[in-house]
Design a protein around this nucleic acid. Sequence first.
DNA 1: GATGCTTACTGAACCGGGTAAGTCCTCATA
DNA 2: TATGAGGACTTACCCGGTTCAGTAAGCATC
Lengths: 338, 338
Amino acid sequence: MKRPTIADIARRAGVSKGAVSYALNGQPGVSEATRRRILAIAEEIGFNPNSAARALSGSMSNAVGLALCRPARTLGMEPFFMELISGVEGELAARSYALTLQVVTTVTDEIAVYRRWWGERRVDGVLICDLRVDDERIEVLEKLQLPAVVIGGPDGTGSLGNVWSDESAALVETVEYLAALGHRRIARVAGLPELRHTEIRSQAFEGACRRMGLAEATTVSSDYSGEEGARATRRLLSSPERPTAVIYDNDVMAIAGLGVAQEMGLSVPAELSIVAWDDSPLCRLVHPALTALSRDIPAYGALAAQRLLGVIGNEPPESHQDETARLTPRGSTAPPGR
Amino acid sequence: MKRPTIADIARRAGVSKGAVSYALNGQPGVSEATRRRILAIAEEIGFNPNSAARALSGSMSNAVGLALCRPARTLGMEPFFMELISGVEGELAARSYALTLQVVTTVTDEIAVYRRWWGERRVDGVLICDLRVDDERIEVLEKLQLPAVVIGGPDGTGSLGNVWSDESAALVETVEYLAALGHRRIARVAGLPELRHTEIRSQAFEGACRRMGLAEATTVSSDYSGEEGARATRRLLSSPERPTAVIYDNDVMAIAGLGVAQEMGLSVPAELSIVAWDDSPLCRLVHPALTALSRDIPAYGALAAQRLLGVIGNEPPESHQDETARLTPRGSTAPPGR
DNA sequence: GATGCTTACTGAACCGGGTAAGTCCTCATA
DNA sequence: TATGAGGACTTACCCGGTTCAGTAAGCATC
């Protein structure tokens, strides 16, 4: 099946290629009558402009890149990314932009992907996930002048635009809530320490515990996987002075933690309170349902995509704050027993 | 920062554009010495061929499309798709193919996306998920002659290649296992009835129950979401002759079912056995860990991608059988109580 | 030394759009 | 009636690769 081109339309309409191009793009240079005729023909024969030809002359690919740097194992588990992607995608589809996805395993590979995309002009811009503490990616992208928006921040994003959420405030709210319930020994199972938002949360956590006069804030590092979350939980619950409440940096680890508590015969929430960061539907499915820090992740992704399209359209990069996660109390938190 | 082109290389090497093209693509027509000189220059200035230009002349975009037709809500939850994507991606990245992703909400939209991709030549081929009972997509893709591989089957895929797994055998094995444990009333919470694999499983389920002389096989339809899984479970467990074992068509619904059982005060596995289809790490995290039908989903995706690249490379379409899901018994299945 | 055959290139067309510059009309105005 | 302005197009070239049809040089053969 031969794909129609503007030359085909031009022939049928009895005009030149140039006229067809003007007509299709809403440019001046053709009469209203001709424009309508051309549009009707295009519609009739099901014309779609060849994206390669358009990219070649217009130097825009109408595609946006997303490189995810996580092992396939944890990637599959985390509802976060899939929700983020669906939000990003919704925004892009509305402007008929495509999303190009690549899964990588190291930051070095990720940077290589950006360089390649840039060289190939395969994408007009990229979204950066998982902002790191000293993030080499920022400088590379600045140097390449590849439009980019960082999902994270607000600091450490260089001259790039970003969207962020106040993680610090959300964590403080959580600690205050647990303290108000009467908890004195609160622990936290954190995500990858090299990620900037882990650091932000850790500082907020320690600060809040200190201010509230709680026992020293125990933070255990992990990698967001259920296995690691379970292991960290076992360690915490086996210590002589075991915590009465644990905050998990994602929902998967929180669910794993709940499983461990049940396996160790601790009743939740009577003997252990659990709070999950990121509230996927999973949190509502387990029993008891998990108290969680909820926010609209598809909307977060949509905002990022929107900002990226802005930067691609030469708007100045901005730092855009998204809503702060709301603490949604459910059955997994209660005053500590005894 | 100006991107280097083959013209830049040609100038520096003192040869024509054509010679550079031959050299870079390993074509005959240049001497070994010249080829090496050209490759060295390309390497030095960090040359990447413009993908649009290449697509325009070579009529290959080096991209593969995947349109996912699920509401964003359930998409985020299902580890299946993310694992599938990471497998697909791994295979594509190895041949430096890009993956273009689009999330749609209806089959009509999905078909429109294929037509657009085809018209725009944005992708060289597509992967089709969630094969339906009377699947309009098949005919459209055959007519467009857009290379495609169906993930599912083995029937109903028309002339398109496909990869599939013997769902029937896996389900029969599960029913036999539960029957051997002593269960007589087994129910099933199924996925969307319009999907072909749901139908296959339903037939296999009824057949197996009949052959084993079990009580009539109750199947409740659902949509793979946790909410629906929970609702279906409540209904099943509230019936006077409640089942002693339930098979769920995905892991999310199984976890929801476990939550409902706990909420209704039924102990798992003593009073209710649970089996999950698709064994994401989630199944191991909850307590008790769920007996599940496991298979390597990234490998399944990789196989599909590999077959698609084959079809794109003009190999004849094949029907390729992947491994059958293995029943992995864990703590959620046991002989029925009493 | 004319003929043929390789080898190693060059030049130009081509893919399918976008767009600046030029042409031809028509109509209003001096 | 000449002049100018604007509208409606056409022409021609550009983007950056690929590829086909030359072409010139080198070598062997008779």
